[in-house]
Amino acid sequence: MAGLSPGRYALRRLLVGVLQVFAVATAVFLLTEALPGDAAVALAGDNPDPARIEQIRRVMRLDQPLAERFADWLGGLFRFDLGVSLVSQRPVTAFLTDGLAPTMLLAALTLLVLVPVAVLLGVVAAVREGSPLDRAVTTVSVGLHAIPEFALAIVLVAVFGVQLRWLPPTAVGVGDNLLRQPAVLVLPLVVLLARPICSISRLVRAGMIEALHADYVRHARRLGLSPGRVRLRHALPNAVAAAVPQLAHTTDWLLGGVIVVEAVFVIPGLGTTLVDAVAARDLPVVQGLVVFFAVTTVLVNLVADIVSFRLSPRTEVVR
């Protein structure tokens, strides 16, 4: 995309993002229609007593025409009205606002630690390419990269929470303000960081190695600039630019990871809310949370694409 100004690019990218959110909202709505047979009966699940079916039908207004319900669903999204829970009749938005704080705290802290640590590891490994340190970092990151969060979490809890008793094994009894007892956050953060640190540091390493072998870096060295300055001011920005889209992709993982980590450590966030709603087949709550997570994912990717466009406008970012 030669000659595309950052502003135009941002606008185009924003349009795509809006379309994506619209598509997800539509798909999430239509899933109700995809339920086999009577949706209310299907959602009632194991205890299909007529009163409950009737109640589900009323709450989800299944007796009204499809087009009308769809218009209401989309209109509701704009007014931040996502319907009410099938189980407790509470508005879905109340679930969202309740669970938001712990989940956001976990995600924000993870990203805060992730970026510097991953970049540092990648750079150190790249500068000493081929050294034992580099090989150790690479091997560990290849291995750690694939571990499901729950398995890692439970092993860490067993070692540090139960055997050594250094850290609290769960967040039970802390309430929603996790910062009041920061020790609770250590294990969840370690678990959330394990996978993304591996993937990002590998990308930074690869980008850094490529940059260090590039002509402009060689040229800068010949000009007599100090090695540290060459690495930090010239090679590093290009290496990081390559990792930014992946960083955005990591948020996808992070959201998935948060769901599992909250379940393991009993943290009352959006993940726990979601898992409970899935178990209860509480479709409106699940739909609302999915739309919320989708908007977040689309937003993060949007920002990342615009940032990496600014960092290196030569390449159009295709996800």
């Binding site: 994506q20 959110v21 598509a23 997800v24 798909a27 999430v28 899933l31 109700t32 995809a34 339920l35 086999p36 299907a42 948020t251 996808d252 993982w253 959201l255 998935g256 990871g257 769901i259 599992v260 979601l274 898992v275 709603a277 899935v278 087949r281 479709l283 699940v286 739909q287 949370l289 999915v290 997570f293 989708a294 994912t297 689309v298 996800r319």
Partner: peptide, 21 residues
Amino acid sequence: LDVVLALPSLLLLLLLATIAP
């Protein structure tokens, strides 16, 4: 397929599992 990519995979899995047998 882009619609599938707009959602975190574990989230989509949970959503589909809510309605699928």
